[in-house]
Simulated scan of single mutants.
Amino acid sequence: MPSGALTEQVAAWLQRLAVERQASPHTIAAYRRDLDKLLGWAAERGLGQAADFDTEQMRSFVAQQHRAGLAPRSLQRLLSSCRSLFRDLRRQGELAHDPLAGVRGPKVRAKLPEVLDTDEAATLVEVPGDDALARRDRAMLELFYSSGLRLSELTGLRWEALDLTAGEVRVEGKGRKVRILPVGRFAVAALRAHAADRPMQPTDPVFPGRGGRPISPRAVQLRLANLAIRSGFPRHVHPHMLRHSFASHVLESSGDLRAVQELLGHADIATTQIYTHLDFQHLAKVYDAAHPRARRKPTAG
């Protein structure tokens, strides 16, 4: 394959993502899946490098993926991956133009995250029982909801990252960005009770799984689903619902979008703004139920 060919350009960019931006393996794998579509399409048309692309070709690429059944949300993610590649190649001096200038994907209807209300969240995290497993689960869910952690941040947590006296936890999020988060008093109490069950070292995982290794994300998913069923929840509950609920409840009470962005570790406040839609939904329900000119007329019996 000649030097500068598209395959090599993609591989070099993914390497820069891993080394310079310290992107996670999951992020790099997602980019690779998207760009494999671009590589396959380009190979069929004899396009050897990014400089061979123009706007009409990229419109044709998007249309072909759409006809192949790619959903609007997936198309938008594919376009985002291609834009990131082209932007980097322009910085590297390997591309003089933007092949995606003016190219837009189909509109995506925003999918609002599922959240628990405050009573549901309290029911879920107050795990019943007085054995070591119940204390671990209680500490795990209380911390999850108290501090709005990502699942990967929760499972990878070590005791040295917790300061229970100060009520703080130090986590390393996406892009290895570190943030210090508050830990609520119920979570602190649950973590103290969990810590008392076994001798621990600062580098030990807070929530160990088999063999003393950190509990796996899949184990947390299964455990949470099981606890929700035991608590009588009528719907499936997944770990990210606790992070979404944390964000929604803090925003609902404070109205401080910027603070919620910092707590969640979002690089872009636009990512956080989806929770304002959830807050509006709640306000709209209150309005519909309370305002005399909004209430629906009772149906005739």
Rank of each mutant, 00 (worst) to 15 (best):
E120P: 04
S152L: 13
E252D: 15
P234L: 07
L191E: 07
P208Y: 04
F207W: 05
A50I: 05
L227E: 11
L47H: 13
P99D: 02
H277A: 15
I180E: 00
D117T: 11
G173K: 04
A63Y: 05
L78F: 04
A161T: 00
L38F: 02
A29Y: 03
G129E: 11
E168G: 00
S216Q: 07
R170D: 00
G93W: 11
Y31S: 06
R293M: 06
L242H: 12
C82P: 02
G301V: 08
G48C: 03
R198Y: 08
A29I: 01
L143H: 03
P72Q: 08
A68T: 02
R33C: 01
T27Q: 03
R295W: 04
L116S: 12
D54L: 05
L85W: 05
G148C: 06
R296I: 00
P25R: 07
L116D: 12
S81A: 15
R90M: 13
L89A: 06
R213Q: 15
E252F: 06
A161F: 00
P2V: 09
L75P: 06
L39N: 02
D256I: 14
R235A: 08
L251S: 12
M140L: 15
A289D: 13
T7E: 15
K297E: 14
L257N: 12
I215T: 07
G265H: 12
V115Q: 03
M241P: 10
D130V: 14
Q273D: 08
D131A: 09
F144W: 05
R109M: 11
E142A: 03
E153Y: 01
V10Q: 03
L283S: 11
L283A: 15
N226A: 15
R213Y: 05
F86Y: 15
H277M: 10
S146H: 03
L39D: 01
L17T: 05
E142I: 04
Q9W: 10
R104Y: 11
A225L: 09
Y145N: 05
W159A: 01
H249T: 12
R192W: 04
P106L: 05
A71H: 10
R138M: 06
F86A: 07
P106C: 00
F233N: 08
Q49I: 00
S152K: 02
V183C: 01
R150P: 01
A68D: 13
A284R: 15
A300I: 07
H277G: 09
A122I: 06
F246L: 13
H266Q: 10
P72Y: 11
P239E: 13
Q273T: 08
T27G: 03
R258Q: 14
R185M: 04
Y275T: 11
A121V: 13
A96L: 12
I274K: 07
Q221F: 14
R235C: 06
R218N: 09
